[in-house]
């Protein structure tokens, strides 16, 4: 138990030090994502799959790099296509979760996408998204449009994107038992590299939830 508390404490500390400014949270579970850093697998990372609307317009590589570790390189060559790396995760109803994605986004639009299923894997009306936008290398900047007017980020370094969400529904719909966690490109020419995807059950600081 002490080891667990210590481990959770350490995880919480890591969460605070590495996360974007967010509500303060406590991690109350271990990471729920299998092979979160893409370190295991033969031809493709174990426990992950790709969903591409048109494989021919995507470059997908699993990179093993001495400096950057393992990561997925995802590039879309067409503007009308989406492509994601994804994994299904069992979740509890009503609780809060934190999704942390370590990525490098250097072009176009991305999406962190959570989609819900029931226990029989039937899709439900649960769809939570965090859109990402990059204007790195956008030819409009700086001469045609000042970067201050641009949506998104010009940050092409590795960074953590944090997405806190509650597995609940206030419209009376069924809450999912399974979530499909997907990260990738949303209908633009884009380049995204993903180093890790992790998810924890969390408790928000000040929350009276048990």
């Amino acid at each position: 138990m002490k080891t667990v508390i210590l481990a959770v404490g350490l995880l919480t500390l890591c969460g605070f030090t590495s996360a974007e400014p967010q509500d303060k949270v406590t991690l109350v579970s271990e990471n729920l994502i299998k092979n979160p850093d893409f370190s295991k697998g033969n031809d493709f990372p174990d426990d992950w799959s790709m969903m591409l609307t048109s494989p021919d317009v995507f470059n997908v590589k699993w990179i093993h790099d001495a400096n950057n570790g393992n990561y997925i390189y995802l590039e879309s060559l067409g503007a009308d296509y989406s492509g994601y790396i994804m994994q299904k995760v069992k979740v509890k109803k009503g609780v809060w979760y934190r999704l942390k994605v370590c990525l490098n986004h250097s072009m176009g639009r991305g999406l962190i996408w959570l989609y819900g299923y029931d226990g029989d894997n039937k899709p439900l009306l649960f769809d939570h998204r965090k859109y990402l936008s990059s204007f790195v290398g956008n030819p409009l900047v700086p001469h045609f449009v000042r970067k201050e007017l641009m949506n998104g980020s010009e940050d092409a370094s590795w960074r953590d994107e944090i997405f806190d969400f509650q597995n609940s529904d206030d419209k009376g719909n069924i809450q999912p038992s399974i979530l499909r966690v997907a990260v990738g490109i949303y209908f633009t020419n884009a380049k995204i590299m993903i180093k890790s995807i992790e998810m924890w059950e969390i408790k928000k600081m000040g929350s009276k939830e048990k």
Binding site: A79, Y131, S133, F135, L140, V145, L149, M150, N151, G152
Partner: peptide, 13 residues
């Protein structure tokens, strides 16, 4: 092609 609808998320409208 596409038109300026591609600018939907381009600026902080």
């Amino acid at each position: 092609w596409k038109g300026f609808r591609a600018a939907d998320t381009l600026l902080k409208w």
